[in-house]
Computed example of a mutant assay.
Amino acid sequence: MQTEDMELKSTRYDVADGIATITLYRPDRMNAWTGRMHTEYRYSLEQAEADASVRVVIVTGEGRAFCAGADMQALEGHAAKGGYDSGTRDDIPKPGFGVRPEFDQNFAYHFGLTKPVIAAMNGAAAGVGLVLACFADIRFAVPGAKLTTAHGRFNMPAEYGLSWLLPRIVGLARANDLLMSSRVFLTDEAYDMGLINRLVPHEDLMTEVTAYARTLADGVAPHSLAATKRQIYVDQHRDVGSSVAEADKLLDEMVAERDYKEAVRAWMGKRKADWTWPNK
């Protein structure tokens, strides 16, 4: 299925069996990030959020790179203008916005989505490409691909909240190394430090990612998946007592839902559950 309201020039969007796949599609430029690509990416996420049939989102790259970072022409444009220009318009789609003020920012909007995002890192990721992967909930990657935060060599700050996020993924000491040095490291090292969930040979990457997405789509109640994702990221901003209180409140509400009763019946009958949320 292809989106119709926006002409996609630098991405592809497909939905099959409850899984939406967003492909960064500038293989001749190693999927370098542009304002157009960011707009299309957010538009596709908006479509996936609005589509009740979509349970999981996969983001990947076409060709030999996941995303090589900001397009060099855009970097040259910043220098010529004497300031940063995102290349996006004020009316850019806003998936995930309106949940918490903290999430209403570039890439932080991933935390406001109700559906998990899996990064299928088919190759190198630098700068904003690494940012995108880090804001995904789960990361699969091919072995031996180059990664870098990149910003240091361009006299830029750590981008898009990566200085907040990366220490929470790999720990402060490792994050300090990657952020302060902007050194190149491989996905193999990233796996060892916990940044990558699973390394998969290139020829098997999409098969394994899709199979994992299928386990989420088929084996986890969609409201449970959405609520758990929300708890994870909101809990990064609050105390443990508030987390427990929210969990108790959600438990009381969700046990009264149709999908809880269906889950029990499916478990007892040893069959696949027929989830209905959000169409209760």
Results as ranks from 00 to 15, higher is better:
Leu166Trp: 04
Pro167Val: 09
Pro167Trp: 04
Arg168Gln: 06
Val170His: 10
Gly171Ser: 10
Gly171Ala: 09
Arg174Gly: 01
Arg174Cys: 04
Asn176Met: 14
Asn176Cys: 13
Asp177Glu: 15
Asp177Asn: 12
Met180Pro: 00
Ser181Trp: 04
Ser182Arg: 06
Arg183Pro: 00
Arg183Ala: 03
Phe185Leu: 12
Phe185Met: 09
Leu186Phe: 06
Leu186Tyr: 05
Leu186Gly: 06
Thr187Lys: 02
Glu189Pro: 04
Ala190Leu: 07
Tyr191Ser: 09
Asp192Trp: 06
Met193Arg: 07
Met193Gln: 06
Gly194Pro: 11
Gly194Cys: 11
Leu195Met: 15
Leu195Ser: 03
Leu195Gly: 03
Leu195Arg: 00
Ile196Met: 01
Asn197Gln: 03
Asn197Pro: 00
Asn197Cys: 03
Arg198Thr: 08
Arg198His: 08
Leu199Ala: 10
Leu199Asp: 07
Val200Asp: 05
His202Gln: 11
His202Ile: 06
Glu208Asn: 13
Val209Gln: 02
Tyr212Cys: 12
Arg214Pro: 04
Arg214Gln: 13
Thr215Glu: 14
Ala217Trp: 01
Asp218Ala: 14
Val220Leu: 04
Pro222Leu: 10
His223Ser: 03
His223Phe: 03
Leu225Tyr: 07
Ala227Asn: 13
Thr228Asp: 05
Thr228Ser: 14
Lys229Met: 07
Lys229Glu: 02
Ile232Met: 10
Ile232Tyr: 09
Ile232Glu: 05
Asp235Gly: 14
Gln236Asp: 09
His237Val: 02
Arg238Phe: 00
Arg238His: 00
Asp239Pro: 05
Asp239Glu: 12
Val240His: 10
Gly241Ile: 00
Gly241Met: 04
Ser242Pro: 00
Val244Pro: 00
Val244Gly: 03
Ala245Lys: 09
Glu246Gly: 10
Ala247Ser: 04
Asp252Pro: 06
Glu253Arg: 14
Glu253Met: 09
Val255Arg: 09
Val255Gly: 00
Val255Phe: 01
Ala256His: 14
Ala256Ile: 01
Glu257Pro: 01
Glu257Asn: 07
